[in-house]
């Protein structure tokens, strides 16, 4: 077991965090999925959320994204309760989940413009052009998304995040389907996103890929967030060993 003394000072975290999850619980009918979870996301930081399959990681992320209504608890975004202003949080988050969420019949550009419009972004055409350029999709902007490979779809997802300019990223297994180059590119994007004040919550099983980016690691176990600690406290090997213990 990792020393509990490594645990961060929970109270200090809460004071200056961008997103605060307080005692959130969720039960789907007869099944308890989350039981009183506390978590705080900081600016300029990435939090890695670990847990075995079915431990409620994705549900927690969906609750933060406002897709699932928690059975109990509150979420504060920049100090305000989000049940009162759900749109304020939703305009600040960017999501990558299992599905891309693009319309196959529309072109990549049209998709980006559509989501940009819903995100109330100004200067949209310019932003779309830049995002496509940065993600290397410039020559594909006018092609329908249904012709895209899954790797290109992922890149387009990153382009959407660039257009939406969120303050918080919720990433659910973002590395699946990314080749080596794309992975490196994605990590560079996350690095710069963090540097400009962004906050990231990531679920992944590829700890090696993202370990260098992590600042905090949180572990969901038995429906509860048992531990969260700083990543500088121990090596990647130690974490992976711990993770294997957990999922065994």
């Amino acid at each position: 077991m990792l020393a509990t003394s490594l645990e961060k000072n929970h109270q200090a975290d809460l004071a200056n965090s961008i997103l605060q999850i307080e005692a959130v619980s969720k039960s789907f009918g007869y099944r308890q999925i989350l039981n009183s979870v506390h978590l705080a996301l900081q600016e300029n930081e990435m939090t890695l959320l670990l847990g075995k399959n079915g431990s409620g990681k994705t549900t927690l992320m969906k609750i933060i994204a406002g897709l699932v209504r928690p059975s109990g608890g509150t979420i504060f975004f920049r100090g305000g309760d989000i049940t009162e202003h759900p749109e304020s949080l939703r305009s600040a988050i960017g999501v990558i989940s299992h599905q891309t969420g693009f319309y196959g019949e529309l072109t990549a550009g049209e998709n980006l413009v559509f989501f940009g419009r819903l995100g109330k972004k100004k200067n949209l055409n310019e932003k779309v052009r830049q995002a496509a350029e940065k993600t290397g999709l410039s020559q594909f902007v006018d092609l329908p998304v249904k012709t895209f490979s899954s790797g290109m779809g992922k890149r387009l997802n990153i382009a959407r995040l660039m257009v939406l300019e969120p303050a918080i990223l919720l990433l659910d297994e973002p590395y699946t389907g990314l080749d080596y180059d794309s992975t490196r590119f994605f990590n560079e994007y996350l690095e710069s996103f963090k540097a400009t004040g962004g906050s990231i919550l990531m679920i992944t099983h590829q700890i090696e890929t993202c370990f260098d980016l992590c600042d905090t690691i949180a572990i969901l176990e038995n429906k509860e967030l048992k531990r969260s600690f700083s990543s500088t406290a121990f090596s990647m090997e130690a974490l992976i060993r711990e993770y294997h213990n957990l999922t065994r």
Binding site: A65, G66, L67, E87, S88, R90, S91, I93, V95, S97, H98, Q99, T100, G101, F102, Y103, G104, F115, L118, G119, K120, V145
Partner: peptide
């Protein structure tokens, strides 16, 4: 539903 666009629509800041 096809590519999960509904979810993308629901997390956008639209009511």
């Amino acid at each position: 539903k096809e590519n999960g666009s509904m979810e993308a629509l629901l997390v956008s800041p639209t009511s």
